[in-house]
């Protein structure tokens, strides 16, 4: 039996090496915040774990496909073991262990996500900058809380965020369910009529839609006819530039 096990294991190792080599390609989208860094980390860990699992199946299939085939019209029969011994138990324990590891990774990162300020979903924690966001078909309204500035995705071209500042989006919807998604920050939460949801991000990279198209707000929950166009560009700027911009906006409002 080891006649087959060793070459198949080698095949598995080779395939796994090829799979893991994809980490050399830097293909994940732009990282705009610590949340995105955390996301990339978990994603990569899970991917590193998942690749050997996938290649195990592929190696077994490919090896069997090439080595155990017969053209003798189904008359020949193969080995007669039935899998009633130890092997299934070992398999069960091994897969359970793998699943347990995946669960622990998930639960730990989940508790990080929900810890204190960078909480997610429901919560009361305040952040230095709060943007009250109202979704409606098919536009966003972003209102900088206590700053007297309001942006409309239909009218204004960009949503400005200051760098290295915690920004909390408080979401409401006045008609149907929408979802606020900023791919550069890997964050998303639905806007549900009748309840306020929130998400907090802390941009730590200057950028805008022109430099990378993932600096944008995108509606990610099908909301009807023009769901496609319900997005708005984001520009992350230095604090000083942000303050100046805010002041000019406020001046415009007061005029």
């Amino acid at each position: 039996m080891s006649k087959h096990l060793i070459p198949a294991a080698l095949l598995w190792v080779v395939l796994t090496a090829i799979g893991e080599a994809t980490f050399l390609l830097d293909w994940l989208p732009v990282v705009g915040s610590p949340e995105a860094e955390e996301w990339d980390l978990i994603f990569n860990v899970l991917l590193a774990m998942g690749i050997p699992v996938f290649t195990f199946v592929v190696a077994a299939l490919v090896y069997a496909f090439t080595n155990f085939k017969t053209s003798n019209d189904g008359v020949e029969t193969g080995a007669t073991f039935k899998g009633t011994g130890m092997f299934p138990k070992v398999w069960l324990v091994a897969t359970s262990a793998l699943v347990a590891v995946a669960m622990v990774i998930g639960l730990v990162s989940l508790s990080n996500l929900q810890a204190d300020k960078s909480g997610y979903g429901w919560g009361e924690d305040q952040a230095p900058l709060v943007i009250e966001t109202t979704a409606q078909r098919f536009s966003w309204t972003f209102s900088y809380k206590d700053k007297n500035v309001e942006l409309l995705s239909a009218k204004d071209s960009e949503l400005l965020l200051p760098i290295d500042t915690e920004v909390k989006f408080e979401l409401n919807s006045i008609d149907v369910i929408h979802s606020l998604w900023i791919p550069a920050f890997r964050m998303k939460i639905d806007a549900i009529p009748g309840r306020t949801t929130f998400l907090t991000v802390e941009p730590h990279k200057l950028g805008s839609f022109e430099t990378d198209e993932n600096f944008r707000v995108q509606c990610a929950e099908l909301c009807g006819l023009n769901h496609t166009i319900m997005s708005m560009h984001i520009r992350v700027v230095e604090q000083a530039e942000f303050d100046a911009w805010l002041a000019s906006k406020q001046a415009k409002v007061s005029r």
């Binding site: 069997a64 496909f65 193969g78 080995a79 299934p88 398999w91 069960l92 897969t95």
Partner: peptide, 23 residues
């Protein structure tokens, strides 16, 4: 749910192993 799903793979891969596959 991955655990029972894994058993399906066990069964499938164990069956083709050392079989006479009629492709």
């Amino acid at each position: 749910i991955s655990i029972p799903t894994g058993l399906i793979f066990l069964s499938a891969l164990g069956t083709i192993w050392m079989g006479k596959l009629w492709l």
